[in-house]
Each structure stands twice: as C-alpha cells, then as structure tokens.
C-alpha cells in the first residue's frame, strides 16, 4: 500500500545513466527542461520524444516502473487536459453545449501540455531512479557551492537526512498501523470525520518516534564530532569521466537543435 510510492525511490542498476556523475545528471536535467520549454509546436515534439526514449533506454529502468511513478500525477494531467480543452478558444469549434465549447486549438494545446508534463515528470523521476540519495545531495552540494549559495553543506545535509528517513518513516507508519489494527482500529471505513479521528492513534506515536529518531541522530552525529561543512573533506570524491563528456555534448547539441528549430519556425514558416 504505502510502499507503492516511488517518488524519490532508487532503482538499483549499473546502466550508463547510473554511472554518470550526479552533477552531470542534475545539470543535464536542467538543460533538458530549458529545451522542453523552448519547444512551442506540437510537431517538434517528435524529436524530443525520440531523444527522451533514448535516455529512458540508457537508464535501464523498465517502463512499468516509470509508469507506476506517474500514477499519483494522473489527476493533475487529466485536469490540465480538461482545462485546456475548455479554456482555449482557437480554430474551428468541434463541440458546443451552451457556453461550453471545445475548439481545435484547445485540443492541440491540451495534448501539448500533457505531453510536456509527462516528459518533465518522467525525466525528473529518472534522475532519482538512477542516483542514490547520497550521490544526489553530494552533487547538489557541489553545484550549490559553485554558485556561491550560502549554507550549501547544511542544506544538502538536511536533504540527505530527509531522503534517508522517508523509507524509515513509511516503515514505521506501516508498523504502527498494523499494531493499532491488531487492537481493533479501523482506518478504512467511516465518513471523513471518523477517518480523521482514526488517524490520531497513528499520528501521535509516529510523531513521537520521529522526534526520538531526530534526537538520537543529532546525538550520534555530535558524538562523531560533526561540526558542519567547514573544513570537511570527503571519503569519496566526485569525478567526471568520459561518459559525462558525452552526456553533456549530447544534451547541449539537443538544446541547440531545439533553439534553432524554434527560430527557424518563427522566421521562415
């Protein structure tokens, strides 16, 4: 049940994408997003889709896993689709009922938005699916330091800890839920009020345990002389390899291509 949540989950593997430096992946994701938002025409999505398909293939993550990660987002996508259908008034009218009408332009725009959203979510999911949380925050820390963002280490450490404790908290939630169900608690039936009330026996122990864990962790870190980022060295240094060069080259070519295509369409078509 709770374990179906795949946001931020890592999919173990040794694919090309898995072995890239996390910094490469973060920066490339950013460039990919810029490219995605540069595209303004539905027909240009052809090569964007092809490029994305190559990335997915290189990640070794099964489509089924990716699709499962999109599941919590389907409501958002349907909403986007419907809103665009009805809110855009362009082109010929396909269907009309009183003041509601669907136009050709609206359908195109709706589909365009949903495809863009799906691509965005999928590729972002690929980043967390192919990068362990530790490497991810390591990469983020280095990038933030480069950009002179203050407290880079502290921010990254907070993120590491938060990511690290998501599975622990899910496990804990499941455990406490089971313990209360064994005592007759019912989390499923009843109206909204009854359901909200039934959460009390779950949430109170959960909060208590989260605070206890935070306390223990702080104590353990202090016992090992943790003093923040100053003068801190790393056991495992991040290093760019040949693959990173290729990845950067491919994504930059892609971005340039997208920009040229956009200008071309604007100037000559």
């Amino acid at each position: 049940m709770l374990r179906d949540i795949t946001i931020g989950q890592y999919y173990p593997g040794r694919s090309f994408l898995h072995r890239l430096d996390p910094r490469t992946k973060i920066i490339c994701l950013f460039l990919y997003m810029v490219a995605l938002f540069t595209v303004k025409e539905l027909q240009s999505f052809g090569y964007v889709l092809a490029f994305t398909a190559v990335i997915i293939a290189l990640s070794g993550v099964p489509l089924k896993t990716l699709a499962k990660g999109l599941k919590p987002m389907w409501l958002l996508m349907v909403l986007t689709l419907i809103l665009n259908f009805f809110m855009t008034a362009e082109g010929e009218i396909l269907w009309q009922w009183r003041f509601l009408k669907i136009t050709g332009g609206g359908v195109l725009k709706g589909v365009f938005m949903v495809v863009r959203l799906a691509l965005l979510l999928n590729v972002t999911a690929l980043l967390t699916l192919t990068t362990t949380p530790i490497l991810l925050t390591d990469g983020l820390e280095r990038i933030m330091k480069r950009c002179f963002i203050p407290m880079a280490h502290e921010l990254a450490m907070m993120m590491t800890i938060a990511l690290r404790f998501i599975p622990t908290l899910i496990e804990e939630t499941e455990r406490i839920m089971k313990a209360q169900i064994a005592r007759g608690a019912d989390f499923e039936t009843g109206g909204l009020m009854a359901k909200a009330k039934s959460l009390v026996p779950l949430l109170i122990p959960l909060f208590i345990s989260a605070f206890r864990r935070a306390d223990d962790l702080a104590m353990a870190m202090e016992a090992r002389c943790y003093r923040g980022g100053e003068g801190r060295t790393r056991m495992r240094q991040l290093r760019y390899r040949a693959g990173d060069g290729w990845a950067f080259a491919a994504v930059i070519c892609f971005l340039v291509f997208v920009i040229v295509d956009r200008l071309w369409l604007k100037l000559f078509v």
Binding site: R175, I176, K178, A182, R183, V200, P201, I204, P205, I208
Partner: peptide, 12 residues
C-alpha cells in the same frame, strides 16, 4: 491478540 516487538511504540 498480537503484541508486536516494542509494543510501547503504539501508545498514544
């Protein structure tokens, strides 16, 4: 009746 490991964590 099932008493879990560390059942004191279920008190609320």
């Amino acid at each position: 009746g099932l008493v879990f490991q560390y059942p004191e964590h279920q008190l609320f």
